[in-house]
Lab assay of single mutants.
Amino acid sequence: MPSETPQAEVGPTGCPHRSGPHSAKGSLEKGSPEDKEAKEPLWIRPDAPSRCTWQLGRPASESPHHHTAPAKSPKILPDILKKIGDTPMVRINKIGKKFGLKCELLAKCEFFNAGGSVKDRISLRMIEDAERDGTLKPGDTIIEPTSGNTGIGLALAAAVRGYRCIIVMPEKMSSEKVDVLRALGAEIVRTPTNARFDSPESHVGVAWRLKNEIPNSHILDQYRNASNPLAHYDTTADEILQQCDGKLDMLVASVGTGGTITGIARKLKEKCPGCRIIGVDPEGSILAEPEELNQTEQTTYEVEGIGYDFIPTVLDRTVVDKWFKSNDEEAFTFARMLIAQEGLLCGGSAGSTVAVAVKAAQELQEGQRCVVILPDSVRNYMTKFLSDRWMLQKGFLKEEDLTEKKPWWWHLRVQELGLSAPLTVLPTITCGHTIEILREKGFDQAPVVDEAGVILGMVTLGNMLSSLLAGKVQPSDQVGKVIYKQFKQIRLTDTLGRLSHILEMDHFALVV
């Protein structure tokens, strides 16, 4: 994948999101292997301009796509893939009243899908469409860049269908997702969380590099694949309309690839034109409109599966009536509230959605109805927002919020430890010299600072030695090549209790 991002070429006709291997024109390309080798690009942008032909009021008969309808489940399912879809609609009884809503608040519980998330729908649909058009064949390999849930859905379907599955996901995604993927037989590649989507090191860039190296491999490409919004247009939206008897006044959905909100909203605009569509985008993402909503100094966020630093091709923002931004604290607070007060075992993005819903639905009156999409299960986040310690460490809970008995030293300040200034190293000294210094002084790690004293990161003896043994660096290389740029900081005025929580999850903390 090139470091400079080429513009994806656009073909003359058809839909841009065809499933299957992508040609340089962004659509299915038939021909000899030699032709494909000559024409197939190194990668295709996940934010390529959409060429979708959908228009409100256009006859369904003019759609270029294969459409399906929700099917009634048999008493005995032939395999677990038949437990994807037909998820329950559940009334939220307490939270709406707590925040003064007059309307009825309903939750579409997508964590009841077989793999635990709304992404099971698009995973199965992308595979079925690729099999139907002859792209996927027995023994082929599926590769997908994902925040985890699409990966789980694909790995689940691949396990049943017999495909090899490789999932490329950023490091910030939970260990629970990784464990589930491994249990399903998927191979996992992790990428830096802070890598831009168009960087060769991003999950998108690495996935395309693997595709170019592995024979008979395919990126189904949830960011561009029409099967993504079509899955929701054909099934999720129809289920909502049936469950609500066609009567709903507002739908609120958090947005990642945009397939969920695009597919549902398009069908609702056709069948229930008075329904307002509300999009939820986390602070630090750029999906919301108008652009002024996205202006923030924050560039990272903890909530998973929603928000991006690019506009995915499948996201149709014209069908969203209003956007709201959400933050991590309210997302996790509301997710825990949904679990504790409503018994809905949902993930953090569901918290984002409901946090926005109780604001947006203030305009609705008694007798009206708001539906929220709860995308995934708490299963993926047992060591994250479900953990009091994690919430404390991230600053989303305060010590006084917890009532468990603490040891005698818990409320003492870090400054009472009488710490001395640490050994520091410059980023320009060599790895070999740094190892000598650390061994001589008896230290395992040291902060790396520039000549102005600005902290650049941390270097550890173990990481340097393993990097040297693996051949990633040489003793003569500058130590700046092996620094940890993500590390926890703590102030002298913070409590030892807070430091204790940090050290339970990290090997060190830097006192500043």
Rank of each mutant, 00 (worst) to 15 (best):
W54M: 07
P200W: 08
V90H: 00
I122A: 05
T191P: 01
R18D: 14
G153T: 02
H22R: 14
A231M: 09
Q55G: 12
S174D: 01
V252L: 14
D86R: 10
C15Q: 07
P88S: 11
Q55E: 12
W54D: 06
E176M: 06
T260Y: 00
Y163R: 03
I166P: 01
F197E: 06
A71E: 12
P145T: 05
E176L: 08
V204N: 08
T5E: 10
P200T: 08
P49M: 07
R196G: 09
L154Q: 01
G259C: 00
K108V: 03
R45P: 10
T135K: 11
K172W: 00
L156M: 07
P64R: 03
Q7D: 10
G31W: 15
L136Y: 07
V252S: 09
Y223E: 01
K98N: 11
A155G: 08
L77S: 04
K83F: 08
E128N: 09
M173C: 06
L56K: 13
T193N: 11
P138Q: 06
A71W: 05
S32E: 13
M126Q: 05
K102I: 09
E29A: 12
M89K: 07
H67M: 05
T236I: 08
K108Y: 07
G26D: 06
E104W: 05
T235A: 13
E201V: 04
P192T: 08
E62C: 15
S175I: 15
N194R: 05
L28C: 09
P273A: 05
A71V: 15
K108D: 03
K36N: 15
N225Q: 01
G274E: 11
T257R: 10
I264V: 13
R125C: 08
N228H: 02
Y223T: 01
V90I: 04
E213W: 04
T53W: 08
S32P: 10
K119I: 02
I166H: 07
I219D: 00
V10M: 15
G20N: 10
M169K: 07
L251A: 08
D86V: 15
P21T: 15
S199N: 09
T146C: 02
A38M: 08
I188T: 05
C15N: 03
A38Y: 09
P138N: 10
T5G: 09
S61D: 05
A130T: 07
P21K: 11
M173D: 08
L56M: 13
K72Y: 09
P74A: 13
